[in-house]
Structures are given as C-alpha cells and as structure tokens.
Amino acid sequence: MNNRIENHPILGELEKRKKVTFQFDGKSYEGYEGDTIAAALLANGIRTLRKHEESGNPRGIYCNIGHCYECRVTVDGETNVRACLTPIKENMVVESGKVQPSPLDPSKENIPRTYAEYMEMEGEK
C-alpha cells in the first residue's frame, strides 16, 4: 500500500529518502527517514493507533502536532509516546495502546462516579 503524495503541483516531487523498517504490533512496516510513526503507519494504511484504555474504542491521530495525546503508543518499551511527534528509527518496536484493567469500572461493581451518586448510595444504607 502506498498513500504517499508523490507529485505535488507546487511542492514538487517527493524527495528520495532512506527506507526505514520498524515494527508495529509485531508486524514489520517500511517508512522513510524523517517520517513520524503516525505518518509512516498512515502511509501503510493504518489509522488505529490505540484502543481507549477503558472503553476499548479505536483511536487514531486527532491533532497530529502533539497537543491532544490521542496518538499515544508504546515505543521500545516506553509508554505514552506521541506517535505524531516521534520519528521512526530502524528496528524501532511500536505497540498500540491497549485496554487497561479498570478497577473503578462502575459497570462491574456498584462504585459511585460522582459525589451526588456517593451521597445517594450512602442514603440507601
């Protein structure tokens, strides 16, 4: 798959850059030197960078410039790294964000989520 904009009427032809091989969730991908993780993955057709820690909903880039933290992934063991700011490196190991154990999941146990709920539950006792 190649989602690169090879030719551009004003910016010209895409310059030749060195290929870089990296891993994402155990699979090997190719990008170019200077690509961020997010750009290299999108060029390979991959949009989903993580699952929401609690709900498991898929997430990808939102702002693409480091402000929103929606693209956080694990890079060579370091968690919460922003894929949109981090350039790929040869043999880099990237893992998508996963669902986390959720001790305060109110669907599993009757735990108050707000002070009002807490007061209500206290009242029932």
């Binding site: 910016l11 895409l14 949009r47 997430r59 880039i61 702002c63």
Partner: peptide, 23 residues
C-alpha cells in the same frame, strides 16, 4: 468524532504538506 479518520483540519494540513501522506 473519536473514530480513527476524524482529525483536526491542521492535522490534515501537516499530513498532506509536511509528511506528504494522504489522509
């Protein structure tokens, strides 16, 4: 709006002109 494929307009600008990757 949390679905992959939804992004800010600036994100699309950077992906297109800086990274030269189709959004």
């Amino acid at each position: 709006w949390t679905l992959p494929g939804v992004m800010s307009i600036g994100a699309a600008q950077v992906m297109t002109n800086v990274h030269r990757v189709k959004v």
